[in-house]
Simulated scan of single mutants.
Amino acid sequence: MGTTQLEAPQEPKYWHLKTVLGDALDSEFAVGEVLPNERELAARFGVARATLRQALEQLELEGRLQRRRGVGTTVAPPRIGVSVGPAQGSWPGEGNDAWRAIGCAEAPAPASVARLLGESARDDRPVHTIRRVRMTHAQPVATELLYVPPASVPGLPELLTPVAHAHAVLRELHRLELEGEDRSVELGSARAEDAKQLERLPGAPVLLVTTRYFAAGRVAAAAVATYRADTCRLTFGDTGAMEITHHGADANRERRHAS
């Protein structure tokens, strides 16, 4: 029987342009430099602006470009290591946790979070919801919502400011003996408030890292952290170590083990 030669699929025009643009970024532009506007770039490469936008969007998804309000499209800096969460076996806010609490409110947990909390979020009772942010070299790396049921932190004082409220919840949480945690990662879209914290547009691609913390035989807290997907990636080592790396000025990497 003779062999059949399969015709190679034709490369989309925007994909070829993405390769050409990537070469130009390496040879002609410095990190942080603002690219010419779309009209100039389309004229330079002889393509329609719709094709150019597709190529730019792909380069942004791959972490080669960053689009910032009031600035434009810039060449992304190299990657640095950003650990996914606190050290294995520790509560949020303990040890070298690099997150900063910026406020806390009491409200019923969203349905998806209530399912994570299980019995700890029954009867639609309000839970303590702490918002935290993580900065690296003065840039927002991630934002997080930490949900803590009242049963996990019964000894809170009253009439606290939002930031004091957040720290009080964390202090009470640290009094519990952490029995374990689990973590999952998925691709999602930035909600309006998260996008604002990350200096992105609503709907921008993000990595959602969801963590449950267990104490006294139940879920004592749950966290949903949002990382920018255009500048973050996941890698796994030989032992299953999970790492999120983020564009920045340093090339060091920090690793942590996922449950």
Rank of each mutant, 00 (worst) to 15 (best):
S152Y: 11
A55P: 01
I102S: 01
P162F: 04
E106K: 10
E94Q: 14
A142T: 12
R69M: 14
R200Y: 07
A166T: 00
L145Y: 01
A223P: 00
Q139E: 12
R122D: 04
V163H: 03
R191E: 14
G118L: 12
R125V: 04
H174L: 08
L170V: 14
D124Y: 00
R125P: 06
G63W: 07
A109K: 09
Y14T: 00
R44F: 10
R233A: 00
T235E: 15
V153G: 08
Y227M: 05
R131D: 01
G2A: 15
H167A: 11
L198Q: 01
L208K: 15
S184D: 14
E177C: 12
A50Y: 09
N96R: 11
L234Q: 00
G248V: 03
D238E: 15
R131F: 00
V219M: 07
L159Y: 11
I130Q: 04
L159C: 05
G248K: 02
L208N: 10
A195T: 14
A241R: 15
A258S: 14
L25G: 06
E40I: 10
L156V: 04
E172V: 05
T74A: 09
V169F: 13
S259P: 15
G155S: 10
R191P: 05
A87S: 15
D124S: 08
D194A: 12
P154E: 13
R64H: 08
F29Y: 15
V209L: 12
P202T: 12
S27D: 01
G22H: 02
T4S: 04
G70Y: 11
R68L: 14
G46A: 13
L52D: 00
A50V: 12
V224Q: 12
K13N: 01
P78L: 02
A204L: 03
A107P: 05
